[in-house]
């Protein structure tokens, strides 16, 4: 059962990495300046109140004790309680998850569609005007800060032409601009990867063989070249998803949307450590498991990769 052993090894690796990420983030947050107890107690609270709150939150204990109790509650499926609102962290995350997932998923679909279509076109018409146009467009899109792209979209579509709402979340119309923003930016990254990979495969000798056999260019491209070209692209797409999560955080701020990004930015302002830990743990786990799935998908895509 080599597949089973492979699966177990990769899963163990993923668990190890997530555990490491928890520790890393715990350490960074432990060093967050400012006393969270003072923030929770509010302005003008007496020293005695702050000491009370600190005892209640447990933030005054030594590092190792805090770390140990954090892991202990994590092992029981408890992400802790938000300093700012007193709600369980998990319920705050669940409440903000749907708008973020919606945005991430729709953007990812647009990213794949734009990236693959334009990338293939660019590779097939390499160094012709179409390729050059796409390449310069992509150069600008990927070098633009994503929040500026968002601001420009708002300026054109909301302020100037009053076509789409600039802010808020909930309706489909409010989703269009943020998705367009992320889709264009990260579609640009994917386009470059697809173009590079397809160009590489188009120069492989087997393509010449297929042409020699008299296959139509269309079937060479879609049945043979794309299949081989997409394997490295899928790995890179895994990395891109991590950046997309980061992009979602920023774009939610630009468009004043509900979501995990909003939660993070608010929690940073109020030193709400359990919420930050919870969101980072959630995002890292999602990212690591997504990449694990991608690794496993090779076995299915490319039979040579079996093992």
């Amino acid at each position: 059962m080599p597949e089973m052993a492979f699966l177990v090894r990769r899963l163990a690796g993923a668990v190890f990495v997530i555990f490491g990420a928890i520790t890393l983030v715990f350490l960074v947050l432990y060093w967050l300046p400012g006393n969270p107890a003072a923030m929770v107690a509010g302005d003008g609270a007496s020293n005695a109140t702050i000491a009370d709150v600190q005892a209640q939150l447990g933030t005054g204990r030594p590092l190792l004790v805090q770390y140990g109790s954090y892991l202990w509650s994590l092992a029981h499926g408890n992400l802790g309680t938000s300093f700012a609102t007193g709600e369980p962290v998990s319920s705050r995350i669940w409440a903000q998850l749907p708008p973020s997932l919606e945005l991430t998923f729709c953007s990812a679909v647009l990213v794949v569609f734009l990236g693959v279509t334009l990338g293939v076109l660019s590779a097939v018409y390499q160094d012709r005007w179409l390729d050059r146009t796409i390449q310069s467009g992509v150069m600008f899109l990927t070098s633009m800060p994503d929040f500026w792209l968002g601001v420009l979209l708002i300026l054109v579509f909301s302020v100037k032409f009053h076509l789409l709402p600039a802010m808020g979340s909930g309706s489909f119309r409010q989703l269009i601009l943020p998705v367009a923003c992320l889709g264009l930016k990260f579609g640009g990254y994917l386009e470059r990867m697809v173009r590079g990979s397809v160009t590489d495969v188009l120069h492989d000798p087997f393509v010449t063989t297929l042409r020699g056999k008299g296959l139509r260019e269309f079937s060479i491209l879609f049945r043979h070249v794309l299949r081989n070209a997409l394997i490295p692209v899928i790995t890179l797409f895994g990395v891109l998803v991590g950046q997309l999560i980061s992009g979602v955080v920023v774009i939610e701020t630009v468009f004043a949307r509900q979501g995990l990004g909003r939660l993070v930015v608010d929690a940073l302002g109020t030193k709400d450590i359990p919420v930050l830990q919870g969101v980072v743990l959630f995002a890292s786990a999602f990212y690591v498991l997504f990449n694990l799935l991608i690794d496993l998908s090779y076995v299915w895509i490319d039979r040579r990769a079996r093992l």
Binding site: L24, G242, V249, L268, V279
Partner: peptide
């Protein structure tokens, strides 16, 4: 390299946000 793996498993901007806030 395992340290780098762990480092890269946190979505990049999230880590940067937390570090920037942590160091103030």
């Amino acid at each position: 390299m395992r340290l780098i793996d762990i480092w890269m498993s946190v979505p990049p901007m999230l880590l940067a946000l937390i570090i920037a806030a942590a160091l103030g």
